[in-house]
Design a protein around this nucleic acid. Structure first.
Lengths: 183, 183
DNA sequence: TTATTGAAGTAGACATTGACAACATCCGGC
DNA sequence: GCCGGATGTTGTCAATGTCTACTTCAATAA
């Protein structure tokens, strides 16, 4: 009775534990299904009842990242481009492994939907800051904002700017603002 | 005599074969040292005489990507921001796996130097297009350009914009131009 | 109430991989 | 001529992803 045969919430638990593991070691390729199962206290094959394979776990994980980001942006008191940059930067700093996973969407996976929700939230956030009512252009601006922020944080957090840290490097918010406003 | 005991050029050959393998399968985590060795016709452990571990091979591979990109930009007849965007876009389209590897630099690795050379080339390319003589601001602009291009191509090639392809998505050159000029 | 069925978990196995240790071969300087 | 270091080879180990077959359990329908 101490340990019921069925876990009951394995899928969610796997994603949560994977996210934790990714905090301990940001390298996604080091994520091991077996180790997660071990840590949760379930057999090494139990996870396969919830994820066809490792890639689907990573997909769910990345989708969770987008949901968290969208929620973080929605619950934000401060609106605008700065908020978008802040949310993404914070995630990339605190969970670089998760941020790395979020750069790739497998077709038909959960990330596609979740990232779309994030994009919608970005649109909502930047809308008051740009005086643009045309939806298509607004979406285009939002994509540009996302790309600029993502690119800048990827460069910094990826270590590609080692040596020039701080000094000489533009902030992702500045970049995004230049991309979004006017034009 | 058919097959000399020593290969003679294994290191370079490994990097080249790895790059090929990455073209066949863009997922860097699928790169196997053993398979490369097998394909080259050398024992499974020979590569370890040239790379302490798998990560060092990936590092050399990514560095090669930056060298190729820098060379491609240098040999370019057309100068300017468009050339930067073109070079990166082309690489990301033709070798997405390599492009993905280039987003992370291990401290002290070869990528740090190679990416610095690439950045210098970007500076040189955008210099005539922006009327700015202050070196620090020029570097900052170059970084912004790089980030914008990289962010946009990562989004498109990563499948994060599936569905909105073409339509609604800004080009990386447009983004970069908006980031670089003025300000 | 009880039989059954399908979802969730377990046990065991297999091929592949990264990496280590010990041994073999070759080339250049003494 | 030999010898030492660089390069390549064989053998081995633990860990991993994933397959197949078996078990447990809860809910449904008789």
């Amino acid at each position: 009775m101490r340990k019921p045969y069925h876990h009951g919430d394995l899928r969610r638990r796997m994603v949560a534990e994977a996210r934790l593991a990714l905090v301990r070691n940001p390298d996604p390729s080091a994520l091991s299904i077996r180790e997660l199962a071990r840590r949760i206290g379930v057999s090494q094959n139990a996870p396969y009842r919830h994820f066809p394979d490792r890639d689907h776990l990573l997909d769910a994980l990345a989708a969770g990242g987008y949901e968290a980001a969208a929620a973080g942006l929605a619950e934000r008191s401060v609106e605008g481009i700065t908020a978008v940059a802040d949310v993404w930067d914070t995630m990339a700093r605190r969970e670089p492994g998760l941020a790395a996973l979020m750069l790739r969407a497998v077709p038909g996976g959960e990330v596609e939907l979740a990232s779309r929700a994030w994009l919608a939230e970005v649109v909502r956030a930047i809308e008051p800051e740009v005086g643009d009512e045309d939806p298509e252009r607004l979406v285009r601006r939002a994509i540009g904002c996302w790309a600029a922020v993502l690119g800048m944080t990827t460069l910094s957090r990826g270590g590609l700017l080692a040596g020039l840290d701080g000094w000489m490097v533009p902030s992702s918010a500045d970049l995004a603002r230049r991309v979004v406003v006017r034009g």
